[in-house]
């Protein structure tokens, strides 16, 4: 790049001055005269500039609505398994029956809105991180009874730091060990919590 001397470009990107249209005065304009809590939440999300996956499509919304309907129906069926009773003689199944009816109704109410709702998010590659995160937790609870909490905890923290958080090897190893030692000292030594432990 050999442009003429003095041809400097404006610094861009994060940390610099806000882009046009998002200065505080502009934000004030955007937050019209009767803002709602939802507006505030949206604005907060925008200012924090965390990027979230895109909204899910109408198919997903229909699936969600159907799941709710199924849950409602299952509840109603389950309530018949107990004594449903009646209005004048309520029994164990009355309340679940009512809840089931409401759930089914709400699920059906969600169906026509499936095309318009945009608050559900698509599952993306980043969602695999969540699966991995849950897997580490499941691994933790599955093994804690057998080998104590120290090793599963170290493994969990290490995986979260190194693989989910992309921290350096050194930090991941050092911090996972430090955290487990700290937990050991606090919970096992100081508080004598009867958590299964190996050492």
């Amino acid at each position: 790049m050999s442009s003429a001397p003095g041809g400097a470009q404006r610094p861009t990107g994060p940390g610099g001055p806000p882009a046009a249209g998002t200065g505080p005065a502009d934000l004030v304009e955007r937050l019209h005269d009767d803002p709602t809590v939802a507006d505030a939440d949206d604005l907060a999300a925008e200012l924090s500039a965390e990027e979230r996956p895109e909204p899910a499509g109408p198919v997903a919304n229909v699936v969600i609505a159907l799941v709710v309907v199924c849950l409602g129906v299952a509840t109603v069926v389950g309530s018949f398994g107990q004594n449903v009773g009646s209005a004048s003689a309520p029994a164990g199944g009355t309340w679940p029956f009512l809840i089931g009816v409401v759930l089914t109704g709400l699920g059906l109410a969600l169906l026509p809105l499936a095309r318009r709702t945009a608050d559900a998010e698509k599952f993306t590659r980043a969602s695999l991180l969540v699966v991995a995160g849950v897997a580490t937790m499941v691994g933790f609870v599955a093994t804690i009874g057998v080998i104590g909490f120290e090793i599963p905890a170290t493994a969990l923290v290490f995986v979260w730091l190194r693989f989910l958080g992309r921290e350096s090897w050194r930090l991941s190893i050092a911090l996972s060990l430090a955290v487990v030692v700290a937990f050991y000292l606090i919970f096992v030594v100081a508080l004598s919590v009867p958590i299964p432990h190996l050492f």
């Binding site: 001397p5 003095g6 470009q9 610094p11 610099g16």
Partner: peptide, 11 residues
Amino acid sequence: ERAGVAVEVRQ
């Protein structure tokens, strides 16, 4: 600019 060099800053 003082040195007469074209500069691009990327953050």
